[in-house]
Each structure stands twice: as structure tokens, then as C-alpha cells.
């Protein structure tokens, strides 16, 4: 049990419904400061809704939410919550280079008469932390999907958040990119002590990026490590059988369902595993 001071995010009995249809029921979460929590679940399982509740965009119909000891909207106003939405919503046609985009993370709070000084250094450091310093002068519209994600995370990081909320951040990024993404998050936690909540339907992303995993399908199951996930648990969450493939190896090991945990990518049973060696059904 952690003390409240150590908790970055606390949700107690949170319930939310769209048009009377419950999406989240009695969800309780405590995320410790500096922890990386992965929330795994199927599409439509309530992951993005949960993230938007933590962000303060949506108010729960029941229960309480505290982020950094405050209501979410108040915490967001302090600039201590960074957020990357599921779809890139930025206008990539803007004539802005990577450096200018990252500076936006800090520029808006600077009085109009004051030039950006230390803010430029913060942006440069953020770019360095996400490994994108070498592309600082490239126009924002000329980045790959993975590079763009890193730049947008750098923009959030430049603002000096304590909590970073990431919604399906690795969609469209290959397995190697997902691994690098996990390493980048680890760097951010080590260097900045960031608390990270990452939601995804992709087990490889969660495995590479999380210390603890919660499976969400309206209600939550917790697992202390990604290794705590078994095919049986995943099958329950995703409503059908799941094959598990080790994302860190060239070829997936074979196990029987429910016999033991593996770190890896969740594949639905009706798909062929990527390397062609076959997965566990």
C-alpha cells in the first residue's frame, strides 16, 4: 500500500457511461509516482475513455479522480499532465520545423513580451531525450509516423510534466520501433521521474513500456508485471482466444494456453503470427 503522497493518480470507484451505456464500471487505480502503468484492452473496451477521465476531458458519473493530489482539470491547468491522443490531430501542413513544434510545449506560458530563452533549452533537451535532436530543423510534415510520435512526446516533455498519458502511441509503428519506444519511455522515467500511463490494445507495446499492467474491459484486472498476463486472462479481456508471441525474440516459443506467462504480443487466434512459426492457441 502506498501513501497518498506517492500516488500520482488515484481513481476510486469510477463509473462512466455514454448515453446510458456503461463503458467503465467501478474502476479503482492507484499509480505511483515514477511508475509506468500499461492499460491493455480491446477496441471499445473503455481505454481511451479512462484516459480522458484522468486527463479531465470527461467527468465520471460516479467515483473520484485525483491527479497529483488535485482534480484532473486543475492538474492539467498547471501543465503537469502531458497527453498524446490516439490519432495525431496536429495540422502537419503548418510551416513549422521540429524545433518550433517542441518549443510550443513551453512557449504558450511565456509572457508575450519575454523572448524564449530557457524554454528553447528545455525544448532542445526534450528533443535529445527522445532521440530526435538530429531532426530539429526538419519540417514537421516530413517525418515518419514513429518520428512524429517522438516529436509530439518531446513537446509534452518540454513542458515539464509529471504525468504522461499516451493513447495507443505505437499504432502504425513496427515491432522494432515499439521496442525503441519502450526504451525511450524508460529513459524519460530515469531522467525526469515521469509517471506514464499508456493504453493500447497491443500487448507488445504494453510489454515493452510498462512496469505494471491493467486489463480493461469495462472493469479492471491488475497484474504486477506484463509477465503476469496469461493467455487465459487475455482471452477473457479480448473475448476470444489469444496467441502470445515473444516480441523480443525472432521466433515465438510455444506453450499451452494458461500454462505460464510470457512477455509478448497478443494476437487473435484467427491471425497468423508474424514470423510464420506459429503461436500458441
Amino acid at each position: 500500500m502506498t501513501s497518498p503522497a506517492e500516488d500520482a493518480i488515484v481513481l476510486e470507484d469510477v463509473t462512466f457511461a455514454y448515453n446510458g451505456e456503461p463503458v467503465i464500471e467501478n474502476v479503482a487505480i492507484r499509480v505511483r509516482r515514477g511508475e509506468r502503468l500499461g492499460i491493455l484492452g480491446p477496441n471499445g473496451g473503455g481505454k481511451s475513455t479512462l484516459l480522458r477521465i484522468i486527463l479531465g476531458d470527461l467527468a465520471p458519473h460516479a467515483g473520484t479522480v485525483r491527479v497529483l493530489g488535485r482534480p484532473p482539470a486543475a492538474a492539467r491547468r498547471t501543465g503537469k499532465i502531458g497527453y498524446l491522443p490516439q490519432r495525431v490531430t496536429a495540422e502537419l501542413s503548418f510551416p513549422l520545423d521540429v524545433r518550433r513544434v517542441v518549443e510550443q510545449g513551453v512557449a504558450a506560458r511565456v509572457p508575450p513580451w519575454r523572448p524564449l530563452g530557457e524554454q528553447k533549452h528545455a525544448a532542445a533537451r526534450a528533443l535529445d531525450l527522445v532521440g530526435m535532436a538530429h531532426l530539429a530543423d526538419r519540417p514537421i510534415g516530413r517525418l515518419s509516423g514513429g518520428q512524429l510520435q517522438r516529436v509530439l512526446i518531446a513537446r509534452s516533455v518540454a513542458a515539464g510534466p509529471e504525468v504522461l498519458l499516451l493513447d495507443e502511441p505505437t499504432v502504425g509503428i513496427d515491432v522494432a520501433g515499439q521496442q525503441q519506444f519502450g526504451e525511450m519511455l524508460e529513459t524519460l522515467r530515469r531522467e525526469m521521474g515521469l509517471t506514464v500511463v499508456i493504453v493500447s490494445h497491443d500487448l507488445a507495446t504494453i510489454a515493452a513500456s510498462s512496469d505494471r499492467v491493467a486489463c480493461l474491459r469495462r472493469t479492471l484486472h491488475f497484474h504486477d508485471t506484463p509477465n503476469g498476463l496469461t493467455p487465459a486472462v487475455l482471452a477473457e479481456v479480448f473475448s476470444h482466444d489469444i496467441a502470445m508471441i515473444d516480441a523480443h525474440k525472432d521466433c515465438p516459443p510455444t506453450t499451452d494456453p494458461g500454462t505460464g506467462p510470457e512477455t509478448g504480443r497478443a494476437e487473435s487466434s484467427d491471425t497468423t503470427p508474424g514470423c510464420g512459426c506459429g503461436g500458441t492457441r
Binding site: 501543465g79 491522443p85 495540422e91 503548418f94 510550443q104 512557449a107 509534452s156
Partner: peptide, 16 residues
């Protein structure tokens, strides 16, 4: 500055 931040990315501008 806030106008450009908002114009570039409306959905995340609140975080900044």
C-alpha cells in the same frame, strides 16, 4: 504563442 499552439493542435493545446 498560445494561438499558434492551439491552431497547430487543438486537441492537446489544453495540456500546454
Amino acid at each position: 504563442r498560445p494561438l499558434l499552439t492551439w491552431a497547430f493542435d487543438e486537441s492537446t493545446a489544453g495540456s500546454f
